[in-house]
């Protein structure tokens, strides 16, 4: 039996569709249920940011999570497969017309992705004052809270509507199949069999 953590919402639906194609059977959660057991699989519906945590602590053997979330959390899990879904970018946004200037002594950056941001500016040897926000990140440059933001961008429409534009991309993200390290070694044949089937179906 493999336990699989899925993030609630669109990614869970897309992933279950892949499983349905591969195993030629329906995988449907009963209304409001968070656990679905079917055949050799137990699916768990969890919050996107919690998928890697469930896998890291082996509450789930494998999981599906965006690379952006995975990079931000930095948990030691195995990256099995790029599912090539849920494409987005982690980008730097500034007020339209402004230019990114790495020569400034310090930059104020608002973001909810503190670790990705810190590591990116450190790699550029730029001192950044990182301000952690939990939402409405686009507001920060408009009210002078920050010089720029680092945020997840899908189409760029939200930034545009708020008078911002993408000035630099930090990371391209898609959903990834991940595995717990010990589960991988204990259940290698099951996990690699699933890897092969899903890889053949995407």
């Amino acid at each position: 039996m493999l336990t699989i953590a899925l993030p609630k919402g669109r990614i869970a639906q897309d992933t279950l569709e892949i499983f349905e194609r591969v195993f030629e059977k329906k995988f449907i959660f009963d209304d409001r249920k968070l656990i679905l057991e079917s055949g050799d699989f137990k699916f768990l519906l969890v919050r996107n940011q919690d998928v890697a945590t469930y896998v890291y602590h082996q509450a789930a053997d494998i999981g599906v999570v965006g690379l952006d979330t995975l990079e931000e959390q930095g948990l030691d899990v195995i990256r099995l497969l790029d599912l090539k879904q849920g494409y987005c970018k982690v980008s730097i946004g500034m007020r339209a017309g402004e230019k990114l200037d790495f020569s400034k002594p310090e930059l104020k950056v608002a973001t909810k992705m503190v670790n990705i941001t810190r590591s990116y500016f450190a790699s550029k040897a730029v001192s950044a004052d990182i301000i952690k926000l939990y939402g409405s990140i686009e507001l920060a440059p408009l009210v002078g809270l920050a010089d720029m933001i680092v945020d997840v961008v899908q189409t760029g429409a939200t930034m545009k509507q708020n008078g911002l534009e993408v000035v630099e991309d930090i990371l391209e993200s898609t959903t990834h199949l991940i595995a717990n390290k010990n589960s991988y070694f204990f259940k290698k044949s099951e996990i690699l069999d699933l890897y092969e089937k899903i890889n053949g179906a995407i």
Binding site: D76, L80, L81, H176, A179, K181
Partner: peptide
């Protein structure tokens, strides 16, 4: 170290 299976395969 991080067992990047996808990359190795």
């Amino acid at each position: 170290k991080h067992m990047r299976i996808d990359k190795l395969l």
